[in-house]
């Protein structure tokens, strides 16, 4: 029996967070969520999710700082798959996470949630 995968979604815009949580739950994931970066890091360190989906512009701690924090955790954080989900698309943002081995940078307006879920499944090999 394959374990249910845990995904942490960190997004400050409520309407978007609700949409993501609802769809990921329907897709069979165990979904954790946070509305700011700081809370996101706290939950991540406590729950060690299998996948993280992060926005960039967020209060308290932005997505890039969250990535930095997570990656600095040598036990689990350095390898966990991370998908950035943002409405920014500038090269500086992309390269600022690339240096932490985060190469999936999705622009929200370009992706339907079903397709994001498919990508998530791909990254988790399910």
């Amino acid at each position: 029996m394959s374990k249910v995968k845990k995904v942490l979604i960190v997004e400050d815009e409520i309407a978007m967070l609700n949409a993501l949580v609802s769809k990921f739950e329907k897709a069979g994931f165990d979904v954790l969520s946070a509305q700011d970066g700081k809370e996101g890091v706290r939950i991540a360190k406590k729950e060690s999710p299998d996948l993280l989906i992060l926005d960039i512009i967020m209060p308290k701690m932005d997505g890039i700082s969250v990535v930095k924090e997570i990656r600095s955790d040598n036990n689990w954080g350095s390898d966990v798959p991370i998908i950035m989900l943002s409405n920014l698309s500038d090269p500086e943002s992309v390269s600022s996470v690339a240096k932490y081995n985060v190469y999936d940078f999705l622009v929200k307006t370009d992706w339907r949630i079903d397709d994001i879920i498919n990508l998530a499944k791909e990254k988790l090999n399910i």
Binding site: E13, A15, M16, A19, K23, K26, I57, N87, L88, S89, D90, V107, K108, T109, R112, I113, D114
Partner: peptide
């Protein structure tokens, strides 16, 4: 950059929710 980010936020919300309705969610 700011304007496009601000514009994209409601656009992505519309995209997702209308998608839900159309696909029968």
């Amino acid at each position: 950059t700011l304007a496009s980010h601000q514009l994209r936020t409601p656009l992505s919300i519309i995209k997702w929710y209308v998608d839900f309705l159309v696909t029968g969610e």
